[in-house]
Design a protein around this nucleic acid. Structure first.
Lengths: 107, 107
DNA sequence: TTGCTATTTCGCGTAAATGCGAAATAGTGG
DNA sequence: CCACTATTTCGCATTTACGCGAAATAGCAA
C-alpha cells in the first residue's frame, strides 16, 4: 500500500496547508462548519476589511478548501474538504499531549 | 458536542498548518513515515543545504509536528503527530474529486 | 587540549504574504 | 441608462518567510 508521492501531489498538499496557515482563515472555516455563509457574514466574524476577507476566501478557494456559489448579489461560501475539521480536533488533542489514536482523528 | 474554539487553539492550529505549508517540509514528513531519520538523511532527501533543512526541522518541531532526540553526534527526528499522514491521503482524494467520506480520512 | 563530525544559529539579501483603501466589476431595481 | 449593493481586484507599504554560507555549538576520540 506504499504509493509514491509525486511532486505535483506534494505541491498541492503544501498549497492546502499554506492556505490553512492563518488564524483568520481558520476563523472563517469555523464559521462555515454550520453551513454556507455569505461574505458579509464572514467579514463580521473575522473583523477585517472586505478586501482582506475576500483575499482570504480566494486563497482558500484556490486551494480547494472552500467552494463558492453566486446567488443574486451575494456570494456564498461553503467547506469543500470536510476532513479539515476532524483533523483539527486531532491537532488540539495532540497539543494537550493526549496522543489520540490515529483512527479517532476523523471519527 | 459544540466546543468553542479559543484564540490560543486557533493560533496553534495555524502554526501547525503553516509549518506543513512547504513542499520540502512535506518531503521530510514522507521520509519520516518509515521511522526516525538523522538530519544527514533528510538533507540527502530534500537536496537543500544543511542550514536550510535544519531550519525546516526546527519549524516542524516548534509546531509540534516532529520530535527530536540526540544520540551521540547525531540528532534523530520522528513524527509526533501521526494523523498528518492520513489527513494528506484525504487531501489527495479531494484533489481527484473523489469526495471521500470523512470517516475514511484517518482509517 | 586539539581535531573532527553533526547540527544549529546568525546575518543578510531576496521573495512572498498581509492588510488596507481606492477603484473596478457584477447583479438588481427603477 | 442610472443608482445602489455585494464582492473582487489593484497598488502599495510593511512584515514575514526563504535559502544560503559563515560562524557557533556540542559530542566524541586521540
Amino acid at each position: 500500500m506504499k504509493t509514491r508521492v509525486t511532486l505535483r501531489q506534494r505541491t498541492h498538499r503544501a498549497e492546502v496547508f499554506k492556505a490553512l496557515g492563518h488564524p483568520d482563515r481558520l476563523r472563517i472555516l469555523e464559521e462555515l462548519t454550520d453551513g454556507e455563509r455569505c461574505v458579509c457574514d464572514l467579514v463580521d466574524a473575522v473583523g477585517s476589511s472586505w478586501s482582506t476577507v475576500s483575499r482570504h476566501l480566494s486563497v482558500l478557494k484556490e486551494a480547494g478548501v472552500l467552494a463558492d456559489e453566486k446567488r443574486g448579489l451575494q456570494v456564498f461560501y461553503r467547506v469543500a474538504l470536510p476532513c479539515v475539521a476532524t483533523f483539527m480536533d486531532c491537532l488540539d488533542a495532540g497539543m494537550r499531549g493526549e496522543q489520540v489514536e490515529v483512527r479517532r482523528c476523523c471519527g
